[in-house]
Nucleic acid binder design. Structure first.
Length: 595
RNA sequence: GGUCUCAUAGCUCAACUGGAUAGAGCAGCUGCCUUCUAAGCAGCAGGUUGCUGGUUCGAGUCCAGCUGGGAUCACCA
């Protein structure tokens, strides 16, 4: 049974019979902790139809519900707020139906499909902290949509061509001396990144030298030999020069091998990879067709533009005067290609930083102008930057937090603290290692996901590494404690079944609070999906764990002599653990049985 | 300069989309482990929600203006 819907309809019935009016704009909200009750009806909006003061209106509705609704036990009125106290049997019923449903919180397949793009790195340097936020967000949103019945296609577009990779190639050719990941033992993406830095260092030195010889800054930047080499490589690449392509394939291959290791540890996956080298020429045809249909226009020099001034934006170029594509052209092509690849998807989610908000606004408008219905279902999952205490991450200034390093650091810290607590001394080396992995990554993921994606956030290495308080490990810990209870119950041969639950007649306040929280789970998933915000689920999981911990501390389960209450509490703990595990799984966080 | 966006406790974040006395965690202080795991629980202290007006029965939330951050506005990607 859906408690909220049932209660809503009972309230509507009450209002109808009291005031003879249909009123469907009910404001029903959770009761503040300081008052008795679980649901609160805000009665100010009702005064217009009741023609009475808010308090009297509240009392009328409260009386009616108490007399005619089987749900409401008693009520209290504070100002215009009607606080409802439901019968314990209602809560027991709610719990029973959740307990009976092993798939609680999972919507069966609806036939709807969605594509989620995330990660989408350049291939000239390793993944960093910003990519971690991106990957965790994209992965989680995809999982959330799966759980509400969507088939989700996780994809990325890999920026594998362009001047950036040519820079790494140029530096490697000049200074690499044939270095390979195999020979140096360096991870492939790190190796390529090393030569990207190497490029920059030499480029700057060369510019400085040329400037000392009297060249202007711009002139020096153009004339620097290493830059000339990079530009030459780019041109040769575009002409499909076999030698250049071989090197390009080789170095990209190193990067992909490195990325695979990183993705593996992050726990993210992709169904299909799109490569810019294969899609960057797409879109041109679509744009030309658009010109024919008068959606776009051509200037005298041959360049093609879209006029978005009617939408409050400016004019944007889509094809250069020499006929070549720009970034936007390519994105138009890729979007259309994806809908051809997956004709059933109703839209695409682009997990990309908020510095590209303007770009996506324009892209969606253009797709719309081209007549694609699905353009309205495309969503830019725009997230804020991750700042460091020292300010913005700047790759040139070496203040970038490397993804591999950070994950390793978190796992090390988790291992250290776990060791220190000494609760797992009997575990095997493999189990201990796996546990540290689970906790370290759980802490990191939770830290990055608990903040509203839209907001920029601060990453303080000292605080982020904490495993107490409002953290992933706090929630994992709650799960592990419940598992200990369940193990003990099993060893005592206590069997729980639906029948024993239905015999429960009264509940402790702490129990009611937890059931109330568990009951919110499905709503929270819907909300998280609607808002594209894993933060909503992260904070929910935290609240649920916190609520359970209060119960745990207040009521020692195995001190209970009444077998009905004992069995109920075991079942209730079991459902809490399962709900925590499910919510965390949607965030990409695993939970341990012991820690 | 135009557009967008953010500003909440010392610090990091919440606030059910306009509802009650704005909540958590960290940091600080005080209690609670003969055990279902103290990675926990209970409590104390900490706030003019950047500023000024407005709309409303009611504003951290909506509107206007100001102050201060950030992003964006290339025939770059």
């Amino acid at each position: 049974m859906n408690l909220d819907l049932t209660l809503r309809s009972e309230i509507q019935k009450a209002i109808h019979s009291l005031f003879q009016v249909e009123f469907d704009q009910l404001q029903l909200q959770p009761t503040n902790a300081e008052f008795e009750g679980s649901h609160t009806l805000v009665c100010f909006p009702l005064t217009k139809i009741s023609k009475k003061g808010p308090e009297e209106t509240a009392r009328l509705v409260g009386d009616h519900l108490q007399m005619h609704s089987g749900l409401v036990n008693r009520y209290n009125v504070v100002k215009g707020f009607l606080n409802l106290v439901l019968h314990d049997s209602v809560w027991v019923n709610v719990f029973e139906s959740i307990y009976a449903n092993a798939n609680y919180g999972v919507t069966p397949a609806t036939g709807k499909e969605l594509m989620v793009e995330y990660s989408s790195p350049n291939t000239n340097k390793p993944l960093h902290l910003g990519h971690l936020r991106n990957n965790f967000l994209g992965y989680s949103v995809a999982e959330i949509y799966k759980s509400i019945g969507y088939t989700v296609h996780k994809v990325q577009i890999i920026n594998d061509r362009g001047i950036h990779i040519c820079k790494s190639m140029a530096a490697w050719k000049l200074y690499g001396d044939g270095e390979t990941p195999h020979r140096s033992g360096l991870k492939g993406d790190k190796l390529v990144g090393k030569y990207y830095v190497e490029f920059d260092r030499n480029y700057k030195a060369q510019c400085k030298e040329l400037e000392a010889q009297g060249l202007s800054k711009e002139e020096a930047e153009r004339q620097a030999p290493i830059m000339k080499l990079a530009v030459q490589l780019l041109q040769q690449w575009e002409q499909k020069d076999p030698e250049v392509w071989q090197l390009w394939n080789l170095m990209n291959g190193w990067v992909y091998a490195g990325f695979d290791v990183t993705y593996q540890r992050m726990g993210v996956d992709f169904e299909k990879l799109y490569y810019e080298s294969k899609t960057y020429l797409l879109g041109k045809e679509e744009v030309l067709k658009g010109v024919e249909r008068g959606v776009f226009f051509k200037k005298e020099d041959g360049s093609v533009w879209v006029d978005l001034t009617a939408d409050g934006l400016d004019q944007k170029v889509l094809l250069r005067s020499d006929g070549t594509s720009v970034y936007m052209t390519q994105d138009i092509g890729t979007a259309i290609l994806r809908f051809r690849d997956f004709p059933k998807i109703e839209g695409q989610v682009y997990t990309v930083g908020n510095e590209q908000e303007y770009h996506f606004k324009v892209l969606f408008l253009i797709l719309n102008k081209l007549g694609y219905e699905w353009a309205r279902k495309c969503y830019h999952l725009s997230y804020g930057m991750v700042d460091l205490p020292t300010g913005k991450m700047k790759s040139r200034e070496g203040t970038v937090v490397d993804a591999d390093d950070l994950m390793e650091e978190m796992v090390q810290e988790a291992a250290r603290q776990t060791q220190e607590l000494g609760k797992i001394d009997d575990m095997s080396q493999q189990e201990i290692k796996d546990l540290a992995e689970m906790i370290g990554l759980g802490a990191l993921k939770f830290f990055l996901l608990k903040v509203d994606p839209k907001k920029r956030m601060l990453f303080d290495p000292n605080e982020s590494i904490q495993l107490q308080g409002h953290t992933g490990p706090f929630i994992q810990y709650t799960h592990a404690r419940i598992k200990a209870i369940l193990r003990k119950a099993a060893s005592m041969n206590i069997s729980v079944d639906a029948n024993s639950i239905s015999k429960v007649s009264t509940l402790e306040p702490a129990e009611r609070e937890v059931i109330l929280k568990i009951n919110q789970y499905t709503n929270k998933i819907q909300e998280a999906a609607r808002e594209y915000s894993p933060a909503i689920l992260a904070n929910y999981a935290y609240e649920l764990a916190k609520e359970y911990n209060q119960f745990y501390q207040a009521i020692p389960i195995f001190n209970e002599s009444d077998p009905v209450a004992l069995k109920f509490r075991i079942a209730f703990s079991e459902v809490t653990a399962a709900t925590i595990a499910k919510a965390m799984a949607l965030l990409g966080i695993r939970v341990p049985d012991r820690m």
